[in-house]
């Protein structure tokens, strides 16, 4: 068991490197629980769903509900708002992606791909820039230039289909998964 003294290193070198490596692996393995504890708990991960009654919402009106900690916009669009949303050339949009959990990924952001029924627009009301809640635009009190929403934090403007048109936000307001239970009731989530 004589120690060798070649350039390839001694048994002692090997033991040093091997034990240091195992130590590093152990430290990295131990670091993970301390990093992962910051992620959402299982309670926060449990998916919640909300049912929304649409019957009280008037044309041109938006009601805000809370869903998974985020505001949920439910807007009953007027024919003029729907027409304005349909008239847009989707190729010219900053984000030509439907961002709709109810349709296939990467579909173009046409109005038909944004709303299951044209009259009802259901969106997660969180600006895709830095997370503020955009203010809804009405004919009486316009917000932004596109009749949809304006985010007052940094000036992002959305149109009547919740698509980003101007400002720093990179993406359209996302459409959450939802389904019509009846003509006047939807289930979100």
């Amino acid at each position: 068991m004589a120690a060798t003294t070649s350039d390839a290193g001694t048994r002692r070198d090997f033991i040093y490197v091997a034990s240091a490596s195992m130590g590093a692996v152990g430290a990295a393995a131990l670091a993970w629980p301390f990093i992962d504890q910051m992620n959402p708990t299982t309670a926060a991960l449990a998916l919640a769903s909300t049912e929304v009654d649409l019957s009280a919402i008037q044309p041109g009106q938006q009601i805000v509900y809370k869903w998974r900690g985020h505001p949920l916009f439910v807007r009953r669009r007027t024919p003029a708002e729907i027409a304005a949303a349909k008239a847009v050339d989707v190729a010219s949009l900053p984000d030509n992606n439907a961002r709709n959990a109810n349709v296939a990924d990467n579909l173009p952001a046409t109005d038909a791909n944004r709303a299951i029924k044209p009259e009802w627009l259901v969106l997660i009301g969180v600006c895709t820039h830095l997370g503020c809640i955009p203010t809804v635009s009405t004919p009486a009190i316009p917000e932004g230039e596109y009749g949809g929403w304006l985010c007052h934090c940094h000036g992002s403007m959305y149109d009547t289909a919740g698509r980003i048109r101007k400002g720093p936000a990179p993406e359209n307001l996302p459409v959450p998964p939802y389904a019509f239970l009846s003509d006047t009731r939807i289930k979100v989530g």
């Binding site: 910051m38 959402p40 900690g69």
Partner: peptide, 17 residues
């Protein structure tokens, strides 16, 4: 962002940390 919040939005978990 989710890791920083400990949730899907700023909330109680965020405040504690």
């Amino acid at each position: 962002a989710t890791w920083l919040w400990g949730d899907f939005a700023v909330g109680d978990a965020t405040l504690n940390r």
